[in-house]
Amino acid sequence: MADHQKIHPVVDPEAPPTEPLVPRGSFRSEKGDPVQHPPDPPPLQRTSPVIQSKPPKRSCCCKCMCWTISLLVLLLVIVGAIAGVLYLVFRPKLPKYSVDSLRITDFRLNYDLTLYAKFDMKIRANNPNKKIGIYYEKGGKLSVWYTNNKLCQGSLPKFYQGHQNTTVLNVVLTGQTQYGSTLMTALQEQQQKGRIPLDLKVDVPVAIKLGKLKLKKVRFLVECLLLVDSLSANNLISIRASDCRFRLKL
């Protein structure tokens, strides 16, 4: 039986040394040892850029409002400054009014039950200002009331009142009132007590004169609360109390 011999491969001594195979994804170190290559980084996800919103611009309406408010404030400051200067220069004082006398020339109940009244009244107007004149224009009215009923009315004359001047006005007032019977009964009851309350109202357009400057027309409103002893005709009525209040209407 023939002997079997093993045949070994012959290595060529002059051939260059062969390197062992390195698996894919690995690399060798400086010593030649295989080193595992780090895995590739995951692909970057694309993100949309963040857009920062710009602050909203002021609208034209807002700007116009700011300008308007600023102009109004400036105008108020200017008007206030002018008013302050005028006050320091002219030192204005309110005019004063009073009722000097009251006479009843006619006061009767008519056949149609209306109440007819005719008063003669003296009104004293005092202008205490040193540098301010008052033009009393046409259209001034003077009326006398009992409760809510107007007894009579008269017109004030047109005139100019100078500096620190006192003027006495004679005014005739006439009127005819409905429900005269009821009014006459109430007035007779008050007359027995000797205390009849009357309300005197004055409404007159005026123009103020500052130095040589005549201003725009305004209205003087005066209300005098009177307390008289009687309303007997052809008698000089005694005024027991008088309280006049003044206000200005632009």
Rank of each mutant, 00 (worst) to 15 (best):
P205F: 00
V222S: 00
P49Y: 06
L75D: 14
V11F: 05
K57R: 11
V77A: 15
C64W: 01
V35D: 03
G194I: 04
G133W: 07
L113Y: 05
Q164Y: 12
T114A: 02
T68S: 15
Y136L: 02
P13Y: 05
D3P: 03
L173D: 00
S143D: 11
R219H: 14
P20R: 13
T182I: 12
N165E: 10
M184K: 14
P157M: 10
K150H: 05
V89Y: 03
K138H: 09
E223G: 04
R195G: 07
N170K: 10
L198Y: 08
H4I: 03
P95I: 02
K249G: 03
W67N: 08
C66N: 07
S143R: 11
P39N: 08
E19G: 11
S232V: 12
F119H: 01
I208M: 09
Y160T: 05
I51Y: 01
I123W: 12
A117K: 01
V171A: 04
T177E: 08
T114Y: 05
M121I: 15
R240H: 11
T147R: 15
L74V: 10
C152P: 00
L169I: 05
S232M: 14
N235E: 14
D33P: 06
V168F: 13
T68H: 11
P17K: 13
Q164T: 11
Q161R: 00
I104K: 05
C64M: 07
F90P: 00
C62E: 10
V11W: 12
D120K: 08
I104L: 03
P92I: 04
P34M: 08
L44K: 13
F220T: 04
Y136M: 06
Y136I: 02
Q36K: 08
T105V: 12
V50L: 14
I134Q: 03
G180H: 13
R245N: 11
K131R: 11
L156G: 03
P34S: 10
S29E: 12
L113R: 10
V73C: 14
H163L: 09
G32M: 14
T18R: 07
L173S: 02
K212V: 15
C62F: 08
G175Y: 04
N165P: 00
